[in-house]
């Protein structure tokens, strides 16, 4: 409508001011600390003026995450854990989402309720649940004992436990968008495919799967982003530096130690990696949309 832009901008102002104060300025603070100096008490001295920026810490952070660097093991762990978790989430989550979205029939409502439930249970509560079961005297070891598998230390530096915990923790966030994507597929397309001679399996491979690809991507982004900042899963399930992820390194530098400059620089590195990932995601979704539009 005409000439009434003012009222809408006015409504936005409080929210925008909030976001500027607590998103934009803090983001700049990270840069200022990463590009700043360190004083004699090992406390960071942020450099707010870009002219006097010191790129030393950022350089150090970049080299430290590469092979041979201090944080290379964390980088390697992060890449491996995240990749395996995404694959597991797909392998377990896609069939579940597919069944609930397209095959559940009358039990769909109940199944939806059940697959939504984990959302409302705190992530840390769900980790706590596994800590009890994976304890040395816990029921996982008891059950494995029945099959003659000996006592296993699950909770100290076991990378398989960390991957299992990450999968358990993040899989609901993967299932949800994939479910939504599969649910949206028009049944008539599947009927057309069958009508044109494709078997049920081929229809799945050539119609359903490609049509759900964007939602698989969305689900992957949704779980990859938080995993890059995850330090609590490893702290709770492993507690060992051998299974540290990049999140652990940042957390130790910023919250634990006295190297906030390097911690901030590491955050910048992290954000750079994620920004590249997000750009790929945006490029890929645009490509998908163009494919569908033409």
């Amino acid at each position: 409508m005409r000439n009434e832009g003012g009222i809408w901008r006015t409504l936005s102002i409080p929210g925008v001011v909030w976001l500027v104060l607590f998103v934009v300025v803090p983001a700049y603070a990270v840069v200022a600390v990463a590009m700043g100096q360190i004083d004699s008490l090992l406390q960071p001295v942020p450099q707010w003026n870009p002219i006097d920026w010191n790129v030393g810490f950022v350089k150090e952070a970049f080299t430290s995450v590469l092979p041979g660097g201090t944080y290379w093991p964390a980088t390697r762990n992060t890449i491996v854990f995240v990749a395996v978790t995404v694959v597991l989430c797909f392998a377990i989550g896609y069939p579940v989402a597919y069944y609930v979205a397209r095959k559940a029939g009358r039990s769909k409502g109940l199944l939806l309720l059940l697959i939504f439930l984990p959302f409302w249970v705190s992530y840390l509560m769900r980790m706590l649940a596994w800590i009890g079961l994976l304890a040395p005297d816990g029921y996982v070891n008891v059950v494995l004992g029945w099959f003659g598998i000996g006592h296993t230390e699950w909770l100290s530096g076991n990378p398989y436990s960390v991957i299992a915990a990450l999968t358990y923790g993040y899989i609901p966030y993967f299932i949800l968008p994939v479910y939504a994507g599969l649910d949206r597929i028009d049944q008539r397309l599947l009927e057309a495919s069958r009508d044109l001679g494709a078997s049920a399996a081929r229809t799945f491979l050539r119609v359903t799967l490609p049509l759900s690809w964007p939602s698989i991507l969305a689900g992957s982004v949704l779980i990859v982003l938080p995993m890059f900042g995850d330090y609590y899963t490893n702290d709770l399930i492993s507690g060992s530096p051998h299974t540290n992820m990049l999140g652990n390194s940042v957390n130790l530098l910023v919250q634990g130690g006295s190297q906030k400059n390097l911690g901030a620089a590491l955050v910048l590195v992290l954000m750079t990696i994620l920004a590249i990932g997000m750009l790929y995601y945006l490029w890929e979704t645009r490509r998908q949309q163009e494919k569908l539009a033409s």
Binding site: L19, F22, V23, A27, G247, V254, L270, M271, L274
Partner: peptide, 27 residues
């Protein structure tokens, strides 16, 4: 403003936490 609104959704919480900690302790 639209972009800004999306930032908290597409940033790992840890990055947000670090940035807020630094701004409240350093600025």
């Amino acid at each position: 403003a639209n972009f800004l609104m999306l930032v908290p959704l597409t940033t790992p919480e840890l990055a947000m936490a670090v940035s807020l900690l630094l701004v409240f302790t350093q600025l």
